[in-house]
Amino acid sequence: MSQRVAVVIPALDDRDLLTQSLPLLIDELEARGCDDELTVVDDTGQDLLAAWIAERFPGRVRVIVRESCGGFAKALVTGARLGTAELLLCLNPDVRVRPGFLTPLVEAMVDPEVHSVSPRVLLNGDVQRAETHQRMLVDGGRLVSQPLTPDPDSSEPVPIPFPLGGAMMVRREEFLAEGGFDPLLAPFYFEDTDLGLTAWRRGRKVLEIPSSVVEHHHRGTIGRVVPEKLVRAAIERNRLLVHWKHLDSKTAAHEHYLALYRDALDAGIGDRREELIWMALALEDLEAATASRSRLGSMQRTLEAALVAADPSRG
């Protein structure tokens, strides 16, 4: 029998997005007929969604109301803890599933070597722009990602550096046992990158399942309530923190350090204040990053090897 899935959607006041995404999801779960769970975690801290969902989708969606807004990672853990199914599917409110997306994901998770999977996440439905289909590499001492154009005809699972947080499936208990996302990266962004890199370095796999397709209307949630400069700052700070957490060779550290030093010089001379702020934010969290790094323990793969293994173009 197919494994049951607990679908958890951490949400802010995303009623307009949920209006579009929930019906598709409900249809999919009903079609699968495996008694899957569907939970929306109201992370507004104001109980805005329960009554609305009860009226729109009576008896079909469970709503968990958080007393205060804790952010995406905490809301996901809240929903995951209250689930009972073996698998946990995390979805963003702005992700619209396409029919038949769920079964291939569940099937891929049968392999215990697979840590997590993501459907092919098409940015705004554009088949040429799969958010999941990217590689990560260290270029000039900086951790960067490069979008790749997916092969639309291939249906074979593809290794990817990390499962996209807005549409990822993990084993629920394993995810909870690992403590969910790293709180170092709060309030948002790069938690999924860290999760994927950790999985790869531990000898596991993260896959994109092309036969499972969803659409992502990117930053439709956070971007609506948080100023762009804060979103950008969170991204750039977390890029550095994740890099520091996973740096594992003296050569790489030296190269990264030189690049960062040069960036700081350039930003200082060129009056590029925002870049200085991003760096300062990351450097303020250096101690926490070191602690997080020490919690990783021994790894089976180096960062470099992990990035190579996770490269979709080599898959």
């Binding site: 801290g45 807004c69 804790g70 995406f72 309030p187 804060l230 700052a233």
Partner: peptide, 8 residues
């Protein structure tokens, strides 16, 4: 701002 973002 959402409470989770305020400290940041």
């Amino acid at each position: 701002l959402p409470a989770s973002v305020e400290p940041f």
